[in-house]
């Protein structure tokens, strides 16, 4: 991309953002389905002692834990288990951002890039969802629930960091990094250089 065309590129990104956000929001349940599958898989493998099931309702996932609620004062609550509802949109708004950047760049095989991008970013969304689930068990659901998780102080700190990183950094940085990696020639053109002309050792 010629250096002078950065402005036009930014305008194209701005033009693609509204439809990209609209598609992402309206098709939220569709985009959330593979993420729900992946979250179920990771939860069953990594947290089988904490997660009983993952259920999808639109763009929301309900993660049913194996833990008892805080106050088991009646027969009902004693037999109940704790569920945590998490919103896939909160961790996947990088999809429309990636779509707008990719479509604005007008490079070959855009559709393939978008599909690969979705596949690459989905695990980061799952990270955010599970980190929020764990954070809510450990920090928000009360000491009785936190005690049932059996996490050590260090593990609780790691959960807090994973949640903060997964909610504040990864949803936007992961798509940006993926886009830079898949548009290197485009970016070198923007900087006015021959693609691959220089190498950093």
């Amino acid at each position: 991309m010629p250096a002078a065309s950065l402005g036009r590129f930014v305008l194209r990104v701005a033009a693609w953002l509204p439809p990209a956000f609209a598609v992402w929001y309206l098709a939220g349940p569709l985009f959330a389905w593979p993420i729900a599958m992946l979250t179920t898989l990771v939860a069953k493998i990594g947290f089988s002692d904490l997660v009983h099931a993952v259920e999808q309702q639109g763009h929301l996932l309900t993660i049913v834990s194996t833990l008892k609620p805080t106050l088991a004062t009646t027969q009902n609550t004693a037999s109940a288990v704790l569920s945590v509802e998490v919103n896939t949109l909160l961790y996947s708004f990088g999809f429309p951002m990636l779509a707008a950047l990719t479509l604005a760049a007008r490079q070959p095989r855009m559709l393939r890039t978008l599909f690969v991008g979705y596949a690459v970013l989905a695990p980061f969304v799952t990270w955010g969802l599970l980190a929020e689930f764990l954070k809510r068990l450990v920090f928000d659901a009360g000491p009785a629930v936190a005690a049932q998780t059996g996490f050590t102080a260090l593990q609780r700190e790691m959960i807090a960091f994973a949640y903060q990183f997964g909610s504040l950094i990864m949803p936007t940085v992961a798509p940006a990094v993926f886009w830079v990696l898949t548009h290197r020639r485009f970016l070198e053109g923007f900087a006015g250089r021959e693609a691959g002309a220089a190498t950093v050792q």
Partner: peptide, 30 residues
Amino acid sequence: RYVWQALIMLDVLIVWLLWVRTLPRTAPAL
């Protein structure tokens, strides 16, 4: 929750690209 988060990161990306463009041409762009 969604739009401004993406816009701020786009701003970061564009600022970084603009900065990369100002670097001397003897150094690698990317």
